Simulated scan of single mutants.
Amino acid sequence: MRKIDLKLGLIFSVFWFFYFLKAVYSFHTDYYLPQFLSQEFEIYIRILIINLLACLALLSIDYLKVDYKLLIKSIFWILFIMLFINLLYTIFYLNQYNKVSGIFSVYYISSGHFGASLVILSLYLLLFRTNLEILISKQVLVLAVLLGLFAVYISAARSPILALIIVSLYFLVLKKQIKFLGYFFLFLLLSVVLLYVAREIVHLDSAFVERNYLWIFEGNTSGREPYLIRSVNIFQENFIIGGRLQYEDGLYPHNIFLELLMVGGLVLLFLFGLLFYPLLRNLGYFLKTSNTNLYIIPLFAFWLQYFILTLTSNNIHSNPEFWYFSSVILGISIKTQNEKT
């Protein structure tokens, strides 16, 4: 353990305390339906303990002393075992494959991102296996990709697909081999064709196929537009400190930047920007493989995946994975900045 970077720790604390005060004020002044009102104290716990306290703990880690090789290997096998059990449970017990979470007691979108995490890590280990010392066979890594894709498929969520596309492109840019980029775009094209065939010709009864077909071919976003528009209207009513925490039924804008403006106005958006300034300042460290610890790249990829999720779903206090990986990446960014100076 080490002392938390005082500036970053202070910004984290101010950000979450301001958000907490806005939550308390909103619960006592804005109208909410009883079902959402019953979650008031659960949300306070999420803000102060699950998010703030946990993030400060992660920021206190000495990232110069972390064994990243062991960490990445441990993450791989934990995800592999969980998703293998998930496969068996879904096939032999649940026997349902449409918008389900399998063994996980989380929202189906989150379970889809667990699968995407294993795919992301396995793809990275396959692409850069000659540069790494993790002795996991190609066969096991391919199996891990399939296990992860199965979890993504049964979740029928779209944000894991979007995350996989963007993170895969990020890996290929790091790889710096044009042929792989060609294969990637060819694979995307074939996937779109197969999706069309599965829906329009085969008429496959699959929530995954239906939701992604409507998303890609018809631009369907599951009715998010009214939530996005309303968040802008609430922000315009008080653009300095924002307005209500969530909508009357507990729903939210489904975009972190619009939600920051809706809840806390320009003040909360400014604090968010200050929070991630160290990452922006040291972003180049994560965009190259030379002079970079290659075992850190997957951690940045996990952060990127959950950042993509914040742009399409979940609200500020119910996306702990994003905040946890943010704390880790910010801690590494501070370490990188200190090494330069």
Results as ranks from 00 to 15, higher is better:
209 V>Y: 10
209 V>A: 14
209 V>I: 15
209 V>M: 13
210 E>T: 15
210 E>P: 10
210 E>D: 15
210 E>A: 14
211 R>F: 09
211 R>C: 06
211 R>I: 07
211 R>L: 05
212 N>Q: 05
212 N>W: 08
212 N>H: 11
212 N>K: 04
212 N>D: 06
212 N>M: 06
213 Y>Q: 11
213 Y>C: 11
213 Y>D: 08
213 Y>H: 12
214 L>N: 14
214 L>I: 09
214 L>H: 12
214 L>M: 13
215 W>A: 07
215 W>H: 06
215 W>T: 08
215 W>P: 01
216 I>A: 09
216 I>C: 05
216 I>D: 01
216 I>M: 05
216 I>N: 04
217 F>K: 06
217 F>C: 03
217 F>T: 10
217 F>W: 09
218 E>Y: 07
218 E>T: 05
218 E>H: 07
219 G>R: 08
219 G>A: 03
219 G>W: 07
219 G>I: 08
220 N>F: 14
220 N>I: 13
220 N>T: 12
220 N>R: 13
221 T>Y: 13
221 T>H: 13
221 T>R: 12
221 T>W: 11
222 S>T: 05
222 S>D: 04
223 G>F: 05
223 G>Q: 06
223 G>P: 09
223 G>L: 05
224 R>I: 13
224 R>Q: 11
224 R>V: 12
225 E>F: 03
225 E>N: 02
226 P>N: 00
226 P>D: 00
226 P>Q: 00
226 P>A: 00
226 P>T: 00
226 P>I: 01
227 Y>T: 03
228 L>P: 04
228 L>Q: 10
228 L>S: 05
228 L>W: 13
228 L>V: 10
229 I>A: 11
229 I>F: 13
229 I>H: 12
230 R>C: 00
230 R>D: 01
230 R>H: 02
231 S>D: 03
231 S>W: 02
231 S>T: 14
231 S>L: 11
231 S>G: 14
232 V>I: 08
232 V>S: 00
232 V>D: 00
233 N>W: 04
233 N>K: 02
233 N>V: 08
233 N>G: 02
233 N>S: 04
234 I>R: 01
234 I>H: 04
234 I>L: 11
234 I>F: 08
234 I>T: 10
235 F>R: 13
235 F>I: 15
235 F>V: 15
235 F>D: 15
236 Q>V: 13
237 E>P: 12
237 E>D: 15
237 E>M: 13
237 E>C: 08
238 N>F: 01
238 N>P: 02
238 N>L: 01
239 F>Q: 07
239 F>D: 05
239 F>I: 09
239 F>T: 10
239 F>S: 09
239 F>C: 06
